[in-house]
């Protein structure tokens, strides 16, 4: 067991007019997760500390926040890889509800704009639609997104334009446009090339740096850009 210091940006909507930094010290095994630290604080020091969690192993996307200045999942952050002081803040650019919990509605609602479902009005075959492993390879990274919001929250283009679709919704568009079974490419492309869409991405790569699933989001967006130039 070793002592770790947590600096946490807290905000109680019923008491505080602005966020406040609070410090906590907990004993932890170096192999534990930052999420375990939060849980320990909540269980033993301050039950009112508020954060989201569910799967605890990086697959549900609940626990994204800013960890020592960089967005990520606390359940995937092992303490021994961190400095002795761990600083946690809510994801930036989304409205804070309480402590480390932000309102994700603005983030999720972006997806709806890109028609996030397979569209194919041809009569379905009796069995599965055939898709070669190579063709599936094109969407393989994009389907691993867990919708944690780390990317969009770290994107300077999103900071200045909250109507911007953001990396995650563009990745979603990619996921369907490059799925050989889908037939709505043109419709989707039209939707993403608007004023608040594709061309707002200036390849700053913040998203790629923070994505906990290590998705090369920017290269996916670049492929969309090339396709848009070619087709439209």
């Amino acid at each position: 067991m070793k002592k770790y210091f947590f600096r946490i940006k807290r905000f109680d909507p019923e008491k505080d007019s602005s966020p406040q930094w609070k410090e906590f010290t907990v004993e932890m095994e170096p192999t534990e997760r930052a999420l375990d630290g939060l849980i320990k604080i909540k269980e033993t020091i301050d039950g009112s500390l508020t954060f989201r969690k569910s799967c605890a192993h990086g697959i549900c996307g609940s626990c994204a926040m800013k960890i020592n200045g960089k967005n990520g999942l606390v359940c995937q952050t092992i303490i021994k890889d961190m400095p002795d002081t761990i600083t946690l803040e809510p994801l930036q650019a989304f409205p804070v509800i309480k402590d480390l919990v932000v309102d994700m509605d603005p983030f999720f609602s972006k997806n709806e704009l890109v028609l996030p479902y397979l569209i194919n009005n041809e009569p379905p075959p009796e069995r599965e639609r055939i898709q070669s492993p190579e063709d599936q390879g094109k969407i393989l990274q994009s389907i691993t997104c867990v919708m944690c919001g780390s990317c969009t929250s770290s994107c300077p283009s999103y900071w200045t334009d909250k109507k911007y679709l953001g990396p995650s919704a563009l990745l979603k568009a990619y996921r369907f446009i490059f799925d050989t079974r889908d037939r709505a490419t043109d419709e989707r492309l039209k939707r993403i090339i608007t004023h608040h869409g594709l061309w707002r991405c200036h390849s700053i790569y913040n998203c790629v740096e923070v994505c906990p699933k290590e998705i090369d989001i920017t290269s996916h967006i670049s492929k969309l850009k090339r396709m848009a130039v070619r087709k439209l």
Binding site: L118, E126, E128, S132, F176
Partner: peptide
């Protein structure tokens, strides 16, 4: 059920011939 899920868009892993 599986065929229906595939038609709804589930990206199942594929055999070399492109089947589930």
């Amino acid at each position: 059920t599986i065929i229906e899920l595939e038609h709804l868009g589930v990206p199942f892993s594929r055999t070399p011939e492109g089947k589930i």
